[in-house]
Write a protein that binds this DNA or RNA. Structure first.
Lengths: 342, 342
DNA sequence: ATGTGTCATGTTTACGTAAACATGCCGCTC
DNA sequence: GAGCGGCATGTTTACGTAAACATGACACAT
């Protein structure tokens, strides 16, 4: 590495409004007005200020602005570090929606979603400069009293439950699981085996419950579900042990479905000839799995948009509304499902 | 939704040091010392302050702190919204490494990586409260004069080139591409076909150059590469048109390899019997593709760690070192590669 | 006993901004 | 032509914190 030690990079502190004001021959307040786009400034004066800004390379100091206004124009996102595909997509959507509204995203990753870790994260977050927070945590419920959100800080919960204390935006997991299960039943399968996500996950619990309810409504026998951890590996392990009588599997996400299919391939079983498989998420890769995976499509972009919309509403209108917004899911039928072997 | 309109949620502005100080019967400066963990405070006094903080639910105001100290304890990340797998993993690693160092991440997504968009993003970022920035952009080079990073703001570039103006941390793309290509040649393939990423990508260019150099060094014929855009779909399209004489393919990422394999399956070609395929990234799913994909493993976690390490060094020691750090890549041989059909 | 050093604590100030209030000019109305 | 209102601009102040400096008490050495 070349050590360059720029000659005494004197405090990288940009010019202030006062300096711009002096150069332009106006008061700092006038500079403030120009910076904030207020209209009651003479055109000639404005131009002079703009020129001075340009010349000095003026940039507003967001810390000072935030201190004065109490607004940070930033949204905190609490999420687990080792994120699933869905979480990443949701984050992407949130970031995009926020940027369009003029807010930036402050990430607060937490390593392990234990109560302790979460409490620490929430505390740190409340010290951070955010106007509201979005929580994407694989928690069964956030009603736990250990978790104290800073009172008065707008929050939106994704991918979890929150009693009715907070705004919740989520995909319609139940509908998705029902569509998947019913699709397999409609194809003529006697029943459907389920590969669930981790027990700590609320989303997983909802999918499992809906799968069971659908089977029961159809009078189909219910085998106990296998429990994975969202990873390809867990799906693979479950696939290796899949009971012989199973002809249809509904996996709670695409990765586990993929791992499961690999195991089936290795066991010499054909898909969908011997076993039909349905996933959940519709990740970009699912269309190219072999065979292309029938799965439940989640509209992550819409989830992100609606979350930010709800959050901004709460932030900017100082209201506190609670309630759950469901984003529809849909079934994408590809080639991993078919009629059972006669 | 239930409208709850909490009775005049009066300014969600927490108690200040002054209020804590009053309750504890000390000066606000003493509260500041306790808040910052300075040692020169009497134990009894400290306890009294801590009790007062607890009682009032005091949280430091980060805007005021930042204004005073000039430090934000935040790192800005500029990246394209529709991110590739690698970018997401890198972001995850950066976020984790930053969190451990006590820094949070401020995301600055930009929709389209045009010069204009990037300039806007940089400007916005320089107004944001960050101590340094990490840039993960699919740009061929950042030496373009249109792009002006705020002078004096520490920066680290990933996944691109930067002349020698900035610190660069990246995987050893050339080595990875060489390993992949040589592996196929060693298996006995006469030459290797290449599916490249978009031309605007510097990473892609490096992989392509290294692929070509490896072939030339081995005296193998060089066919013009196909150009994809990182997506599964582009790999699929290229796979449908793959020339018949090709027996070995090196794809510049796993997604395109996956799409290509799907096309080969549909064309009734066997992998690796008829065509061997190597990818790049070693995404979590690659092990469960069918067949499991031989690919170049990238240590995204290490890239994230080193980037943050370099950036923090620059931030906290006010030095300006430039140079490139290479993170090794390695080949993971699975079942998508084999000897060519005799 | 006086001086000196250490340590806990208090007082003053400035960081850069924007709200609130103040000023002064110009044009218009009656 | 006197008064009034609108408008551009300036002055004062406060946001919450931490650095710099000041104070005062106590311990210990001479």
């Amino acid at each position: 590495m070349t050590t360059d030690t720029t000659p005494a990079t004197r405090s990288r502190r940009g010019p202030s409004m006062a300096e711009v004001a002096q150069l332009a021959g106006v008061s700092s307040q006038t500079v403030s007005r120009v910076a904030n786009g207020l209209t009651n400034v003479d055109a000639a004066t404005r131009d002079r200020v703009l020129v001075a800004m340009e010349e000095l390379g003026y940039r507003p100091n967001s810390a000072a602005r935030a201190l004065k206004t109490g607004r940070f124009h930033s949204i905190g996102v609490i999420m687990t570090t080792l994120s699933t595909y869905g979480n990443m997509r949701t984050l992407d959507a949130i970031a995009t929606a926020s940027a369009q509204a003029g807010y930036s995203i402050t990430l607060m990753p937490i390593a392990v979603p234990t109560q302790g870790e979460m409490a620490v994260a929430f505390t740190r977050l409340s010290e951070q400069a955010v106007d509201g927070i979005a929580i994407i945590i694989e928690a069964h419920t956030l009603d736990n009293s250990d978790i104290i959100l800073p009172p008065g800080l707008p929050a939106v919960i994704l991918d979890s439950d929150a009693g009715d204390r907070y705004t919740v935006v989520d995909a319609d997991q139940a509908e998705g699981a029902r569509l998947a299960t019913q699709h397999l039943l409609d194809l003529g399968h006697r029943t459907v085996f389920h590969v669930a996500g981790p027990e700590s996950s609320f989303s997983s619990a909802r999918r499992t419950a809906s799968w069971r309810a659908t089977l029961e409504a159809a009078g189909a026998p219910v085998l106990p579900q296998a429990v994975g951890d969202w990873t390809v590996e867990s799906g693979y392990r479950i696939g290796l042990d899949l009971p012989h009588e199973v002809t249809a599997v509904f996996a709670a996400n695409d990765q586990m479905a993929l791992g499961l299919m690999r195991a089936l391939h290795e066991r010499g079983l054909s898909i969908p000839g011997d076993v039909s498989v349905v996933g959940f998420d519709d990740m970009a890769e699912a269309q190219a799995f072999w065979p292309p995976l029938t799965t439940v499509h989640q509209d992550f972009a819409e989830i992100g948009r609606r979350s930010i919309q709800a959050l901004l509403h709460e932030i900017e209108d100082s209201t506190h509304e609670t309630g759950t917004t469901m984003v529809p899911t849909s079934l994408v039928v590809r080639e991993s499902t078919g009629v059972p072997r006669a």
